[in-house]
């Protein structure tokens, strides 16, 4: 890792250090949210820092250093782990305006019955790790955008800048990613017996009535 940095003057190296070091914790956190494995995260962060050192002279606005580093990290993550299947899905994603959406709410809510909100009851059954597992099943692009928006809380504009895509694409990818995520969550809920294929089981209501 020494090599790319020898091209910088001592002053530039100081700047490099002062820019990246305070943000290393952010890179590790987002890296771990994306990879879930400390070992893979460490690799990803090392590659990100190496790339950042190499391209440091291209960073003009130092107030945007965090977004710039996150862009390198997410690009690195996506290109490293992306599969062939993912590539095909991207073309489909950009091509179709409104792909078929899966909605957990539509599957679980029962507008006919006025008592309770079965869809909300199901959500309370999930533990944090169930959500992490479901996010981990998404392809790299979808995982990245869900983590950036829902977990990290970045705005659409910030995500557009980090992922280097138009805001409209942020919206459409987010919508597709959530649809995929909700489908995974639904499958998990079925596996766990929290819902039947025909909708939410009436067990909770029945228990309450006893």
């Amino acid at each position: 890792m020494e090599a790319p940095c020898t091209k910088y003057s001592p002053e530039e190296r100081k700047q490099l250090k002062e820019t990246i070091l305070p943000l290393l914790g952010d890179l590790e956190r987002v890296g771990l949210e994306l990879c879930r494995s400390p070992q893979q995260t460490e690799e990803l962060v090392a590659e990100t820092v190496a790339k950042a050192c190499e391209k440091f002279h291209t960073l003009r606005d130092h107030s945007k250093a965090k977004q710039w580093l996150l862009r390198i990290l997410t690009n690195q993550f996506i290109s490293k782990y992306r599969s062939k299947k993912t590539r095909r899905e991207i073309t489909y994603d950009e091509a179709s305006e409104e792909p078929e959406q899966f909605s957990l709410f539509d599957e679980l809510s029962q507008p006919v019955f006025w008592w309770g909100n079965p869809e909300q009851e199901v959500i309370t059954k999930f533990v944090d790790n169930d959500f992490r597992e479901a996010i981990g099943l998404l392809n790299e692009e979808s995982r990245t955008i869900v983590i950036m928006c829902d977990v990290e809380g970045y705005s659409y504009d910030e995500i557009a800048s980090i992922m280097d895509i138009p805001v409209g694409t942020v919206r459409s990818r987010l919508s597709r990613a959530r649809s995929e995520l909700q489908k995974k969550l639904y499958n998990h809920a079925i596996d766990m017996g929290w819902v039947s294929n025909r909708g939410v089981e009436q067990r909770t209501t029945a228990d309450e009535n006893e």
């Binding site: 890792m1 070091l21 290393l24 914790g25 952010d26 590790e28 956190r29 771990l32 949210e33 400390p38 995260t41 460490e42 962060v45 090392a46 820092v49 959500i123 999930f126 944090d128 959500f131 992490r132 996010i135 869900v146 829902d150 977990v151 990290e152 809380g153």
Partner: peptide, 20 residues
């Protein structure tokens, strides 16, 4: 809100010792 709750603690990760 549940997904927001998955955000990890920055200070808890002391992994990249070599990079640091």
């Amino acid at each position: 809100n549940r997904l927001k709750g998955l955000k990890l603690d920055t200070s808890s990760s002391e992994m990249s010792t070599e990079v640091r």
